[in-house]
Design a protein around this nucleic acid. Structure first.
Lengths: 241, 241
DNA sequence: CAGTGGTCTAGACCACCCG
DNA sequence: GGGTGGTCTAGACCACTGG
């Protein structure tokens, strides 16, 4: 473990050290970390200081406390609780995870817009994934996804069946990268060309465009994606604060 | 002040009591609350317990701590920091608060959809405000806003100039109601009829529809609004987590 | 300088979970 | 019952703010 900055408060040093250990999979998601008394002893701090550090990690969603049982590394869930973005309205109206069809995976030199977003030098190798998402065989979203190659190289060789319908669990499982937060920007455009064909829409019909920049726990951008879907069946819900 | 539930932790009782006092404007936004030692003495708890209660209020955005100065009731700001929703792109691209033109204020019996959203009995008196928002004289948003009459009656008689371009500060100043959180749902429709005229659009052009349900600190719904604007100049940004 | 919040301690006791 | 986290205390010392 790296030498922490002695000028920082001890609870902050402990916090950072625990983040690092969670990131290095010292404890796997779902496992318990040592109990508070033990942490206090090994780090030579009072138990109140341990609690303050753990409080922060719980607030950030890295840990879960369970009274009487222990403190556990949290397994992020992007489909239901965290990312409840889209409500693809099936005929009956319930929310569904769309099927995912990967069309292409390739390695490119980062175009300047992508390099800017991911905070990489221009022409750094990046992975570009194109993907079609469907509900009941009907295309609802066409996506292009950009990832830094050095962190996500293992996703390149993976069979599509291994990846499944959700990318973020795959990032976690196969690349050790956890998405913790994101920023989305929505605009409306008219569809044309390749996207009209993919989404089976007439040229000129309105589509919604969603750009997402997703970050890891350390605040580093990990993924940039742009998704397009027919505007007429679009529904997007957000909670503010 | 009401008798708090003795079964709750003392920091929680203190927390709730401070919420009530802030809600009753015992201290006005921007003012300092008593210092920690004083609170500890008057509530007969240890200073660490006071800190835990205040920690919660800071996390909820009700208070702000300033090291060496004191702890202050926070003045919510909906234009810049909290509600950074719309980026009306002026030619130069900067974000602007659109001008607000109130078209109508009337009292109605709540239609069932509105009563449901605001959790009121059907046919409860509600206020309906219609409003046009413009940038450089161009309409960017047509809004209808529904409020429970019992809480917002004072807004009815207010001159438009007193209300200004933002409603939430007016709710706070004239009705004593503070908006703390909201849920927004976005969809896309084709414009027709009255909205086409208001927004000066041809019938059939796509518009964005934003439904917002806004809540007070106690979680009670206070306002329901539906806003419509031309889709082509629409841009919406959200931070997730 | 005095007053404020920020950190940290060492320990007590309570409430929950599970064998 | 033994182990866990949750609450609470009483106080020390530090760091920032402002007159």
């Amino acid at each position: 473990m790296a030498m922490p900055d002695q000028r920082l408060p001890r609870y902050q040093q402990l916090h950072d050290d625990l983040v690092a250990q969670i990131g290095n999979h010292v404890w796997r998601p779902g496992e318990a970390i040592p109990n508070e008394a033990e942490l206090a002893k090994t780090y030579e701090v009072a138990i109140g200081t341990v609690r303050k550090a753990v409080d922060g990690l719980v607030a950030e969603g890295l840990l879960e406390r369970h009274h009487g049982k222990g403190t556990f590394v949290r397994r992020p869930r992007f489909d239901s609780s965290l990312f409840r973005f889209f409500r693809f309205q099936s005929p009956s109206g319930e929310r569904r995870v769309p099927e995912s069809r990967i069309l292409q995976r390739e390695v490119l030199e980062a175009p300047s817009a992508v390099a800017d977003a991911l905070r990489l030098p221009v022409a750094t190798p990046v992975i570009r994934i194109t993907r079609l998402r469907l509900i009941d065989q009907n295309p609802v979203l066409a996506e292009e996804i950009w990832l830094p190659k050095d962190k996500f190289a293992t996703i390149l060789g993976l069979p599509s069946e291994e990846i499944g319908d959700l990318l973020y669990p795959a990032y976690e499982q196969y690349c050790g990268q956890v998405i913790a937060s994101a920023t989305e920007t929505l605009t409306v455009e008219s569809v044309a060309g390749a996207y009209a064909r993919l989404l089976r829409l007439e040229c000129g019909l309105p589509i919604i465009v969603i750009e997402r920049l997703a970050y890891g726990f350390d605040g580093q951008p990990l993924e940039w994606r742009r998704s397009r879907g027919p505007a007429d069946q679009f529904r997007y819900q957000v909670d503010i604060r």
